[in-house]
Amino acid sequence: MIRYIVKRLVFAIPTLLAVLTLVFVLVRIVPGDPAQTILGDQASQEALQALRQRLGVDKPIFDQYVDFIKGALVGNWGESLVTGRPVLAEVWAVLPYTVDLTVAAILLGALIGIPLGTWSALHRNEAIDYATRVISLLGLSFPAFVSGILLLLAFAIELRWFPVISAGKLDDPVERLRNLTLPAINLGIIMAAYVTRVTRSSMLEVLGEDYIRTARAKGVPDRAVIWRHSLRNALIPVVTVVGLYLGILIGNSVLTEIVFNRPGLGKLIVGALNQRDYTMLQGLMVVYAFLIVAVNLITDLTYGFIDPRVKHG
């Protein structure tokens, strides 16, 4: 297992470098002079030159690349052009909110989706199965901003159980949880719907496998056939979907963050786009690159944990 972990870690390095290079290239191929775009048509030559120097775009392209990679790796991502604060500090300030929301949504998705999908598969083509399938389809097709507003109307405005603005302090755990609940449910519904569907189909496939027949043939009780013999095999595709979706989730949480007025990476990136904050955007792309590589790494490690064929392969 240790060897497998080390191997995955080593493989993550070239992936990360490739993504960073891509970010670098993408930012450079945007047409026009960034200094001109930032300062506008009326800017003086001196001001433009000064900004170019500050951004480091006056250096040869290869030097820029080396600077960028070095900076990205040691956490020196420059300063925001709008606030003047280091990009890293801005990211650190909102990262806990994003991590809270993402982890909570994944947990909700798994805790609801896996049992529901399993239950649905075990009652294939019965009323329970049809109901689950319709509900999960509904969960998938409901836009996050609509469900978010409905949640706010019901639980924050009518019932007043949760705050309308979820941007509270992080140091009070109760407050933190209260602020997290509605946004997490909002994202968790979609996650749960995905996980339910994947678990159901994967479970149906596993239940038809020869080794499940073997388990029954040796007199294993139904409970153990489902939990020990089937579910672990059925979870392999679920991990894939959760891993893929996690990457999307980090980016897509922006709608939820806006509806619930909650800080987060998504809101940061939209703000940076609106204000043409190039250094911020570049920094955020690096953060996303790190996050996606990290998620993939965790997914791979989870495979190794579930499926012995992976770590021996």
């Binding site: 020869d210 073997t214 388990a215 040796k218 007199g219 095999n233 012995p308």
Partner: peptide
Amino acid sequence: DREAMRRIRGNRISMIFQEPMTSLNPVL
């Protein structure tokens, strides 16, 4: 009934199958 039958399977009457490659659980 199911439970009585389960207690016989793999105990008093056993079965082996054609496909050894797929008849064992890969994760156990």
